[in-house]
């Protein structure tokens, strides 16, 4: 199952014929109901983040955001994202290339396996790594003897985030590559280009918007991942707390203003993600790229 993120939008022609449209009153009521739903579930949650973040003024806001533990959390999140996104980008490209350019037995199984992390609860995803590397896990005693820390440390956080975000780039690229076909690549190879040349000069430019969008989705999810990281982090303040975990700890300590201040950073990032998504779709529709 692939999520059809609405492609290039065709604008509805103004003035549908009367017989194909609803009476104005019905239209108004339906629109109002839809907008109330949007207000209750999207706009108000968005608004309350900023309202609560600034409830005690800008001074408190900047103190909460630039406080040392918050900065450490930001550093950990950035570090994790910088490790996770390039790895999953490579994986996404390789998986999409294998799946959409070639035929082989067991392809459906492979696609299912690529998608698997999406159908597993983040908590269970994190748990997998606790079972492997936790104190009573499979490799726990072995790691303990050698004083190697995976769970409750950076490697565990990276592994859990990798697992949860691994399908994102592949999922963006597979349908894109399939819809684009490989005629240009075949032509390039037939004309004597090497494999690497073909890939860099033909394939990458063809899929660059899909690639870009996959990276954005993967980054957004890495930065925001909560459940899986929560299991493997151990919540050691300043050491293993990513930004979302920092928000959770502040909130549970009733430091609501600080929690919402840090949360507002994540919210702004989410809004930037949505704007970038809109821009990419717009560019893609202009260029007639299959996305």
């Amino acid at each position: 199952m692939k999520l059809p993120f609405g492609g290039p939008k065709r604008r509805e022609k103004k003035g549908r014929p009367r017989s194909l449209n609803e009476p104005p009153l019905v239209r108004g009521l339906l629109t109002a109901a839809a907008l109330v739903f949007i207000l209750l579930f999207l706009l108000l949650p968005l608004g309350i983040v900023f309202a609560k973040a600034l409830a005690e003024g800008w001074g408190m806001y900047s103190r909460s955001v630039f406080e040392p533990y918050a900065l450490r959390a930001i550093r950990l999140t950035v570090l994790t994202t910088l490790i996770v996104v390039p790895l999953n980008l490579l994986f996404g490209i390789a998986a999409a290339w294998a799946v959409s350019k070639f035929d082989f037995r067991g392809k459906n199984l492979l696609v299912t396996a690529i998608d698997l992390p999406f159908s597993v609860s983040p908590v269970i995803s994190g748990m997998l790594f606790v079972l492997l590397f936790g104190a009573q896990g499979l490799f726990g005693p072995w790691l303990l003897e050698r004083d190697i820390k995976i769970v409750f440390a950076l490697p565990g956080i990276v592994l859990a985030t990798l697992f949860v975000t691994s399908p994102l780039v592949a999922r963006e690229l597979i349908p894109l590559m399939r819809s684009q076909g490989s005629e240009e690549e075949e032509m390039a190879v037939t004309l004597g280009a090497s494999g690497l040349q073909t890939f860099l000069k033909v394939s990458i430019p063809k899929m660059k918007w899909g690639l870009f969008y996959g990276v954005i989705l993967c980054s957004a999810r890495s930065i925001g991942e909560f459940g899986a990281v929560s299991v493997v982090s151990g919540h050691i303040r300043g050491l293993t707390t990513t930004v979302p975990l920092h928000v959770e700890m502040l909130y549970n300590e009733y430091q609501f203003t600080a929690a919402f201040a840090v949360a507002s950073l994540l919210t702004m990032l989410a809004l930037v993600t949505l704007v970038l998504k809109g821009l990419i779709e717009w560019r893609a529709s202009l260029r007639g790229e299959g996305k």
């Binding site: 994986f91 390789a94 070639f102 492979l110 748990m127 997998l128 990798l162 691994s166 494999g195």
Partner: peptide, 28 residues
């Protein structure tokens, strides 16, 4: 077909899925 890179792409994909997916699920 004529396209190169099947071995590399497939090899990396399987290696990655094996490490990240198969071993942890196996542990479960």
């Amino acid at each position: 077909g004529v396209l190169p890179g099947f071995g590399l792409a497939m090899g990396f994909t399987l290696w990655y899925l094996g490490l990240l997916l198969l071993i942890p699920v196996g542990a479960l």
